[in-house]
Amino acid sequence: MSRKNLFIGAAFALFPLTLVAQPKELVLYCSVGEEWCRAQSEAFSRETGINVLMTRKSSGETFAQIKAEQGQPRGDVWWGGTGDPHLQAAQEDLTQEYRSPSLSDVQDWALRQAETSGYRTVGIYAGALGFGYNSTLVTANPPACWADLLDARYADDIQVANPNSSGTSYTMLATMVQIMGENPAFDYLKKLNSNISQYTKSGSAPIRAAATGETAIGIVFMHDAVAQAVGGAPIMTVAPCEGTGYEVGSMSIIKGGPNPEAAKLWYDWALSAKAQEIGATAKSYQVPSNKNAVTPPEAPKLSDVKLIDYDFAKYGSSEVRTALLARWDAEIGTLGK
């Protein structure tokens, strides 16, 4: 019998962790890299004692999930991920307006994100789009421009995410449309399709595949490529010569979430300089939005990149985003990979 008691005792020892205790918790939908999500949640837990229940999903997927849960929201904060789906969520009334006292500390580009959305979202970091190649696989004459990616040498050797699920890939789609105009952009993507080996779900997966050599080139945000290089992979980061778009990684409070107080605590904390410097410790080299936060030395200098004047209001709007994605599905998605 004592053995049985021991077993029951062990079961009850675990009990408080799941069902009873935890008066304070926060359900976090996280759309940056898993490692950063983990570090950020842990830091918040340590500081506040609030238990963070975190799921990491790509921003397009999180948007779909928040929309599906609209009748009964289960998440509190959506932290990270490209700004466009955050703006769309704000427009569709899925997220909550909140003017954090910390807003005064953020850079102009981050504040503009808040103003565009009626203070339903705010920028927390920025990063430029580009691509990375594996220097052991691509030795001679490496690609430097978007146009170079159409080279037949890279047949079946480029990966990019699916823009439906990934904000990274949607940023690329919107960037191409802004650089070339809509029809030429889709022609380009159609040609590029014959070099694509797989449309991944997560935006940063292509560069992970390139790092292990599963593919030669991954189209990602430059900071993701840098992270792989810092991690020791033979990855070279490229800022495309035609110019490129960028993201304002954002954060929103989900409307009607179960823990609104904890959500605001997170929101204020996540805008602080200290919280924004956690990214670099988790190999995420985005440019932080807090003016006082130290930009990690590894971060790609936005001043060295030829940035286009990305129209966030337009390409983050529900109509434009839905229409572009539908066209991608019809013209590129059906070609299949």
Partner: peptide, 20 residues
């Protein structure tokens, strides 16, 4: 599964997807 109640296999799938 949900953020509140995640299962081991779903967690593993997330890691595999992410290349970890």
């Amino acid at each position: 599964v949900s953020a509140r109640h995640n299962m081991a296999t779903a967690y593993i799938m997330g890691r595999v997807e992410n290349g970890e």
